[in-house]
Simulated assay, not measured.
Amino acid sequence: MFRIVCKTSVNRSTKHWTTTNPKLTPFSRLFSTTLNPTDQHSFTVSFLVNSCGLSLESAISASKLVNIDSAEKSDAVINLLKSYGFTKTQISTLISKRPSFILSNAEKILRPKIEFFRNLGFSGSDLTRIIVSNSYILASSLSNTIIPCVDFLRRYVETNENVVYTLKQSTWILRRNVDKIMVPKIDALHALGVPKAHINRLIMIQPRSLILPMKYFKEVVRSVEEMGFDPKRRSYILAVKAMTKMTKATWDKKKEIFMSYGWSEKEFHSAFTVQPMLMLCSEKKIRELLHFFIEKAGFKPSEVAKCPNLFLTSFEKRIIPRCAVLEVLFAKGLIKKNLNVIWMLNVSKKKFEVKFLTSYLEDAPEIIKAYRGELGFHGFGKCFKASK
């Protein structure tokens, strides 16, 4: 039956649509001609496709939740979003996630919320990105949810700039009663002796850690304590951040990768204690660096474990170029074979360049190409003797 109706509509309307909408694609033109202007459901689907950019499938699905009876009100929503820099794709995504937005009062409901975030400090792509990726922001009450949450954050992180930074880490807190959920965890950290400045830092860099269920939060804090972290040191907060950023299954999987490359339990514990952010590296990067350090460069697993900061550096921009420079210098006999190479990868950019580029440029001009990544790294081979 539906196919018969579509065919009839196409025959009756093809001329009208092809002449008044020359820019429509053949598919959209065909779809548009199947809609009877007097059919409210068809009008809704048509508007969602042609004005909002939804796919036919998404539009049909959305039409079950909304009924557009006037293009004027919905056009006002689209024009408002465009005026704030939302792209066609972003508008389509936003409406697909929450079709009810297209029925909102653009001036009374949407504009005040967008203006609030813009005045707070979000602008340009940051403004549109945060709203599209967290569409519930426009569905939340400005006076009862958004403003109280921002006021709460400002009491701890003080400036609007810091509030913006915090919300970029997680806008999930805008969906929570922050006073009720976050304060008990903040009080718990205070009781453990964590300085206020460090707690405020945790709120900024990992606000979601403080909206976790209290049971899980206590388990994390207990684990951090058992590892020997000092509550008064900044590393304590970084450890809490790292452990609340992933599930236990993900934690165990990453740990297993380190162990599979020869790290002992003690070495893993020591590396995490020195650099908690180590565990925030992706599984791919962890595996890639371990393979490079141990299999290609020839370092001992214990040597790598002593320099966990290397996992936070760029593999392509730092590790490989430096190894390539040292490979050239080793091959020419310009540096001692017992040099602790892994620590040379860990020194500052300025110190490395002064020690190995400036000092040996005349004797080995090719190190410039090596440092630029033009020579690559082939391994130290027999020219390198691992440090003891």
Rank of each mutant, 00 (worst) to 15 (best):
M1N: 12
M1F: 11
M1Q: 13
C6I: 03
S9L: 14
N11Q: 14
R12Q: 10
N21F: 13
T34E: 03
T38A: 11
T44D: 02
A59H: 05
S61E: 12
A62L: 09
I78A: 02
K82H: 09
Y84F: 10
T89S: 12
Q90E: 08
I95T: 06
K97P: 02
I102P: 00
S104I: 04
L110V: 05
L120A: 09
G124I: 06
D126R: 05
D126S: 11
L127Q: 04
L127G: 02
L127W: 01
R129T: 14
I130V: 08
S141T: 03
S143A: 15
N144K: 13
N144D: 15
D151T: 14
D151C: 11
F152A: 09
L153S: 09
R155L: 15
N160E: 11
E161W: 04
L167S: 05
K168E: 12
W172K: 14
M182S: 03
V183S: 15
P184V: 03
P195K: 08
R201H: 14
L212R: 10
P213I: 04
M214F: 14
M214Q: 10
E219D: 09
E219Q: 13
V221W: 03
R222C: 15
R222Q: 14
S223R: 12
S235P: 01
Y236T: 07
I237F: 09
L238C: 06
L238R: 12
T244P: 02
K245W: 15
A249N: 11
W251A: 15
S260W: 07
W263G: 05
K266I: 10
F268D: 09
Q275N: 15
H291Y: 07
E295W: 03
A297E: 00
L310H: 00
F315E: 00
E316W: 00
E316I: 00
K317S: 00
P321G: 02
C323M: 04
L334R: 02
K336R: 15
K337S: 03
N338C: 04
I342C: 00
M344T: 13
K349C: 08
K350R: 08
K350V: 15
F356P: 00
S359V: 07
A364T: 04
A364D: 03
R372D: 10
E374P: 02
K382E: 12
K385A: 08
S387P: 07
K388L: 15
